[in-house]
Design a binder for these strands. Structure first.
Lengths: 234, 234
DNA sequence: CGAAAGCTTGAGCGACCTCAAAGTGGGTGG
DNA sequence: CCACCCACTTTGAGGTCGCTCAAGCTTTCG
């Protein structure tokens, strides 16, 4: 498939449901369109590195990006993903700090760069936009706090089941029922905070118990209820 | 010591350095003063429970509050603390959701209740206030993400050392060098996500290695540098 | 087609949890 | 003001989850 942006103009893009820029005025959208800069990235490309000064934020037009922090001995902790309609890097912009995460492309992506000044301008002049951004940040924060509780209290087995359900929720499944996102075993491990081998062993168990089906890197959830019970979801 | 608010009016209170309400206009402060309601709480009191609908947020005038989530089998995970000048519960207000944490008083406190409508009004009419709140949320989010990485990658020993340093940083030390916050062993355990007994054993080790001094519930850090090395701070 | 990256399985061990039991201190009610 | 009670603290023993290291296999990609 050829790599092209889904929309050519921000006016079109922002019409997608619940889009971050849905509350901008026509004039603001026009400004955005003038000043943004769209780039195509291939799988494996890094958009920005932890520690980078980034002069703006990025709006994902198409594709999937993983967001992670690098800890001790180079071990990565995946904090989350961004996909079509999400924006990344806005925290560093607003705090005027260097990026505290690295963002790397998992599926070929089209990503628009939005200069810092413009983001600040929108926040200051458009209170609906500001409130919306605030709500998004609050949601991320709530998610992060819930995950702290999870990782501190649940076993690796519980977290793995939970993560599979979350991924299904966030990325959906294709026609043939496989998860719409493809990750390496190491990436799975870096989400739930465990060793690659542990993920592999647990996947084998889940497979033997007919909870999931494994086909190379494709995964199908066979028994969502039982997985939910294992995940101990509240 | 008698339990009284530190300031009687929001006009005075907001003048404290870097206060959340520092960017409000005189008119807004007047409104706030009229509509807020100040309450005194004693150690052990709960301000709101996880799952409660709270019709506003709370601004801490004096005292210390712990913020925690209750996980499986009633085990609590402490997410953070709030002290003089902090506001809590604003996320639930902005998202119009039930509270996702419980907040309980650790040191006798004076806390002002601020109705939801008023908070929304400030966010919508005062872009500086909105931006400030956004920055605060961003900071909390960054802190949460860093902690996810920590808890996923570091050992309990590392996290305990790190937490002691953080508490020293956040609450300071009294004249005689003891940490200005007093927690039970169980609360320490609930911060770093471990068992109470493990905290006790590690404290003994730290004490034997002359890293800390223990005097009942009071703790003094004796060798910050070595603690920092143990914490593997980056 | 070869190299590099990713996957899988096994063995061994150690950090941390759980359970149990005894000691300690502070707060409260008589 | 004192005694009792309850919550907190401490220490020990034993078990296990999940990590590390190692080695061989498979897939992908240039």
């Amino acid at each position: 498939m050829k790599l092209t942006p889904k929309h050519s103009s921000c006016q079109d893009c922002s019409k997608e449901q619940a889009h971050i820029f849905q509350h901008l005025t026509e004039d603001e959208l026009f400004l955005l369109d003038q000043q943004k800069h769209c780039n195509l990235y291939k799988k494996g490309d890094t958009i920005y590195h932890e520690g980078n000064r980034i002069g703006g934020c990025y709006c994902i037009n198409k594709g999937v990006i993983k967001i992670y922090k690098t800890g001790l001995e180079g071990k990565n902790q995946i904090i989350g993903f961004a996909k079509s309609g999400d924006i990344i890097g806005y925290r560093s912009v607003l705090s005027n700090e260097a990026a505290c995460t690295t963002t790397k492309v998992i599926e070929d992506s089209a990503v628009c760069f939005i200069p810092s000044d413009l983001l600040f301008q929108f926040v200051q002049n458009n209170s609906e936009f500001a409130l919306n951004l605030l709500k998004i940040t609050c949601r991320e924060l709530e998610y992060a706090n819930a995950y702290i509780t999870d990782i501190a209290q649940k076993s690796v087995r519980e977290r793995l089941a939970e993560m599979l359900l979350k991924l299904q929720d966030e990325f959906g499944e294709s026609n043939d029922g496989y998860l719409q996102i493809s990750l390496t075993r190491q990436e799975f491990a870096n989400i739930i905070g465990t060793a690659t081998e542990t993920v592999i062993r647990l996947f084998s168990e889940f497979k033997n118990d007919n909870l999931i089906e494994l086909n190379m890197k494709k995964i199908k959830l066979l028994d969502v209820n039982k997985l939910r019970r294992i995940a101990n979801d509240m």
